[in-house]
Design a protein around this nucleic acid. Structure first.
Lengths: 246, 246
DNA sequence: TACATTTAATTGTCTGACAATTTAAGTGCA
DNA sequence: TGCACTTAAATTGTCAGACAATTAAATGTA
């Protein structure tokens, strides 16, 4: 592991990249111990503070973990699904909120990916998945539910659909898309009428899964997408009217 | 922004979390300048080095950027698609390589997501997308191509398919899945015969997109998936035979 | 005005110190 | 011997202070 003395990037960034490369390439394996901070400082010819900044960068990406005390140190971390979820959700949420992504674009992406799960979910769903979805539908039928809780329940329902596909990689990939949509969804004010329609569409999805009918699940998701789009467009139009003619 | 004196987590981690929360919640907006390191040190009641470690954590997640000199400092960074791609690919690649994900699981997830793009791609593909895909197919037909280059070309082709859907959020989400699969795909030794079959299937996909025929694109992707799975299973079986009876 | 110089603010890096934590090794005692 | 306790050593976490490097604004000058 070497750094380029010609580069004008921060030393701590270069060192972090060198170690990151070693981990990603498989040169360093899971649970392998890195040299101590002092040793790394000697190896790279920098001070300990610079090494520490590099290690903190890696820790922020869950690439290493540190342990104090004798025989402690920094170890290559096994990236678990849970940590990866967290990273993905944070990144996706910020990406959407900072880049003026249109509601339609995010919505389209989300439902496209969920439809990818539908055939697998119809085939592999267990009674537990069905009951989780049913529970959320019942919550959503409760008129006392706040808009935020309604959206949270919506996320939980879609999360259950994704998990029903029984593919952890798919769950991980879609978690970002579904969770990151929540702030955009929260902007929709759900009327009693629209809630009723959504519950109806969710129920159709549930029945399709219960019957292991992939085609009807796909249709239900298409209907949900187009109805959600309509709601979103109405909100945006109303907002435009307010700001356009105040 | 405050930190919990009761917590036993590292101060730099707590400070990073406090600032991260402020950014994600929208309390701090894009391009807003953070207080200088010295000011943050005073505010949180810690040393400057501790603050610096916190800031490096945030920089590693592309949440802030720093600039030296007068009127420099740390600024909330606009997370662009490019940076988000990078993060997502790194995370996905490590997740797959560190968690003994089965080839079938990753393959299934990848093709499920690609099929989600197919209808949109069939509808929106431009001549440029078609020619990109055609170019890769021509490369793949070249018998002199190394296995690694063949895989890279495969990734480029699938990337073009995803981009043809014309939805940047979808492209971002799928980039991780497709790129992260490459190391697993590289393990397949492509015989001349299997390459021919893949080229044939890719061509079928291309024709379907050219004809704006979503159904045939879906079918082609299904066929590709099942053929890829077969190849993967053969490699794994051969490997098991070698190690099982040496 | 246009250009060069100075100045002040800020991050980047280094040094050295001490605190906190954790494990291994040693020590004493029953 | 076996066990509880102490000690030592290694390592990360935190702090304080210094100086270098960089940058934009302010200032001076022709």
């Amino acid at each position: 592991m070497k750094i380029d003395p010609e580069s004008n990037a921060d030393l701590s960034a270069q060192i972090a990249q060198a170690i990151r490369d070693a981990i990603v390439s498989g040169d360093m394996i899971v649970d392998e111990r890195l040299p101590s901070e002092s040793e790394l400082a000697d190896q790279f010819g920098v001070s300990r503070s610079t090494v520490r900044e590099a290690l903190k960068r890696l820790a922020a990406q869950s690439l290493i973990r540190t342990q104090r005390g004798a025989f402690g140190g920094a170890f290559v971390n096994r990236l678990c699904y849970h940590d990866a979820y967290g990273q993905h959700i944070t990144t996706s949420t910020l990406l959407l909120s900072m880049n003026d992504v249109r509601f339609e674009t995010a919505c389209e992406a989300r439902y496209a990916m969920e439809r990818a799960c539908a055939p697998l979910a119809a085939q592999r769903r267990t009674p537990r998945h069905l009951s989780m979805i049913r529970k959320e539908i019942e919550r959503q039928a409760d008129a006392a539910l706040s808009d935020e809780d309604f959206c949270a329940s919506d996320v939980a329902l879609h999360r259950a659909l994704v998990d029903a596909a029984g593919n952890p990689v798919l769950s991980y990939q879609l978690a970002g898309a579904v969770e990151a949509m929540q702030p955009l969804m929260n902007m929709i004010t759900f009327t009693a009428r629209s809630r009723g329609e959504i519950v109806r569409l969710h129920s159709a999805l549930l029945e399709a899964l219960a019957d292991r009918h992939a085609g009807r699940a796909d249709t239900a998701l298409h209907a949900l997408e187009s109805y959600t789009m309509t709601l979103g467009r109405d909100v945006l139009a109303a907002r435009a009217r307010r700001t356009g003619a105040p």
